[in-house]
């Protein structure tokens, strides 16, 4: 008896987490007539791919994905590169000083980007970078550096200083120590941080909305939120759900592959110094 209750609770947690996702996929596979029909059907009676086709036909959705990939990927690379260097230097400082500095990084890490849009927008406009990939890449890097430094610092600190000394004896320069010793040894943490940064950049909305006002530069979340309709007054729910499904399935596959690391990363960054 207890076991069935247990599994009931587990099943309901499962349902709670995945239901919206399932609903989006289910709606996406329905033909337009069935989407707007009552009573609501919980499983498509006829499976049709017309919504998916429409998503790509009516707007450059592939372009949106490409834009997201470019901005998120570029930002991740830049963030990891910058954060490695910073974390490396922090590690050399000794625990107390490093912690004092890192406390300020924590403050930077939790600031909601929605509050920073206006100043960032103004800066980007000054630099004439609006509608340019660089604007988003730089902005995302800046936003993610504190978090990445935090995580990488914790990871680097696990490696003993003796490694550095030994390498120095071997004739390694400091940059070589970073590139050839520390980074290869902390690959798991690097991967976790990169994944988390990538996810954050991919999901980011408000900066992408403000810094890339032209349609050919939309990232995926912006593209979906601004999905246009078949007529001036109509909301294409079938297509919207199809676009959502297209976006979310790859994300879920990725986190399925990396879930252990992601959880490790979230907790490590959050808890350990």
């Amino acid at each position: 008896m207890k076991k069935t209750l247990f599994y009931c609770v587990i099943a309901s947690i499962f349902l709670y987490c995945l239901f919206p996702f399932f609903w989006a996929i289910q709606t996406a596979l329905k033909p337009a007539g069935e989407v707007f029909r009552l009573p609501v059907s919980y499983f498509p009676e006829t499976i049709s791919l017309e919504n998916v086709k429409d998503v790509f036909a009516k707007r450059p959705f592939g372009r949106y994905v490409l834009n997201s990939l470019i901005t998120a990927g570029g930002a991740t690379i830049l963030t990891i590169a910058g954060a490695s260097v910073l974390a490396f230097r922090l590690r050399a400082l000794g625990l107390r000083r490093a912690m004092r500095i890192q406390r300020w990084f924590l403050v930077g890490a939790i600031l909601p980007p929605a509050l920073l849009v206006i100043p960032v927008f103004m800066v980007m406009k000054q630099l004439s970078l609006v509608n340019n990939y660089l604007a988003l890449i730089l902005a995302y890097t800046a936003l993610n550096l504190p978090f990445a430094v935090w995580m990488l610092h914790a990871a680097f600190r696990q490696l003993p200083r003796e490694l550095d000394e030994a390498a120095l004896m071997d004739g390694f320069s400091p940059s070589a120590i970073l590139c050839r010793i520390i980074l290869p040894l902390s690959r798991p943490s690097l991967a976790v941080t990169a994944v988390l940064v990538f996810i954050f950049c991919w999901n980011e909305f408000i900066l992408a909305l403000s810094l890339m006002p032209s349609q050919s530069k939309y990232t995926v979340p912006v593209g979906i939120a601004l999905l246009s309709g078949a007529s001036v007054y109509e909301i294409p729910w079938g297509e919207i759900n199809a676009a959502v499904a297209l976006t979310t399935v790859p994300v879920i596959l990725v986190i399925a592959a990396l879930q252990r690391w992601i959880i490790e990363g979230l907790t490590a960054g959050a808890v350990k110094g």
């Binding site: 987490c17 729910w237 676009a243």
Partner: peptide, 22 residues
């Protein structure tokens, strides 16, 4: 179970908000 618990966090908020609207 761990994977399914991760799913809501990993999906873009703006995108899921459309689903919620629906």
């Amino acid at each position: 179970m761990r994977l399914s618990v991760l799913v809501p966090w990993a999906l873009p908020t703006a995108v899921m908000a459309m689903v919620w609207q629906w």
